[in-house]
Design a binder for these strands. Structure first.
Lengths: 176, 176
DNA sequence: GCGCCCATGTAACTAGTTACATGATTCA
DNA sequence: TGAATCATGTAACTAGTTACATGGGCGC
């Protein structure tokens, strides 16, 4: 899974940064996982480690993808993505909230809306970053824009959902 | 987490059915998990087990929620839902697909669109079921509708995204 | 008689997370 | 001098999944 993160040679630390910056909207990795996987990749010959001494900085272990790693990645890209079992705690709680006062639910929805607005703002920032990036090819840029749109569309849909739900809950609150 | 599934007393088997039918859009449970949790709930006094002999059927172990369990549930409902780390394999693969021919990507998107259409059809079926259900209170019904809308809005947003992306990929395909 | 649905569970395993441990450099 | 950032890793634990094991009843 991490073999694909070898866009360019990177260290475990770099990889984490990269994940947080570019793919955090739809994927998440933590240090522990990255370092263990990196070690495995090295053992399996899918990536190779090189220890580099950067000036006035601690040692870095930079990993590069090998030919074998590239083959594995292509293989992975060709098999269809499998959907992960859904786990939306917010919705789950909502489902069981028949005995919770409407007012509390309204509070929850307002909070959710705020965090959605924030997420939308962040993704708009990111989109600007894509346009300005000159290193990436046209197709790559297009794919980035597409992935970013996915998050945006979802978030917009959720905002709409929040607004409509808030309206419903307001009427409920008055009748309670 | 399963204490809340005690809408009415149910066995492990019933719970699984219930999950699949009503909350599968946003939550997923498997038998192994259910039975282990059920046992724990019993041990902690949050639910009690009763073995029931139904006519001409194997023994059933029906669990009911206790007062302590209800308190725990209320407590849980009152703390804010925590977002689970996102894992969208489809988008992740897309992100790394710069070297995959546009034609293959188009195929993937068509498949995704089909499954989305199916999901929308299913949720529309479910919505009919809600309206017809006479046992549930008005507020409960409203909450069900709201949760169901959430899925619908998301799916619709995704369909829109698929369509727009397909158009983009078509032009890319012709230039490749 | 065969396959499907009802019904319950355990054991082994895999994946993922948290917490810990360490230490250098840079900047306020 | 202390906080933040760079940098790498391990150990212990928790959660979740797969696979296995079992057996009766019902409908075709």
């Amino acid at each position: 899974l991490l073999g694909l993160l070898t866009f360019c040679p990177m260290s475990g630390y770099d990889l984490k940064k990269f994940c947080d910056k570019f793919i955090s909207q739809f994927w998440h990795e933590n240090y522990a996982h990255i370092y263990t996987v990196l070690k495995e990749l090295d053992k399996e010959g899918l990536a190779i480690k090189k220890t580099v001494q950067t000036d006035s900085r601690p040692l870095k272990s930079v990993y590069s993808i090998t030919a074998k790693g590239k083959a594995e990645l292509t293989e992975w890209l060709h098999q269809p993505a499998q959907a992960s079992p859904p786990r939306y705690e917010f919705i789950l709680k909502l489902f069981f909230s028949a005995d919770v006062p409407a007012e509390d639910l309204i509070e929850n929805f307002k909070r959710l809306k705020n965090s959605l607005d924030q997420a939308i703002a962040v993704s708009e920032e990111n989109e600007k970053g894509i346009v300005e990036d000159n290193e990436a090819g046209e197709k790559q840029k297009m794919l980035w824009r597409i992935t970013s749109d996915c998050g945006k569309y979802n978030n917009q849909a959720m905002v709409r959902w929040c607004n409509e739900t808030l309206a419903k809950l307001e009427t409920l609150k008055h009748s309670e």
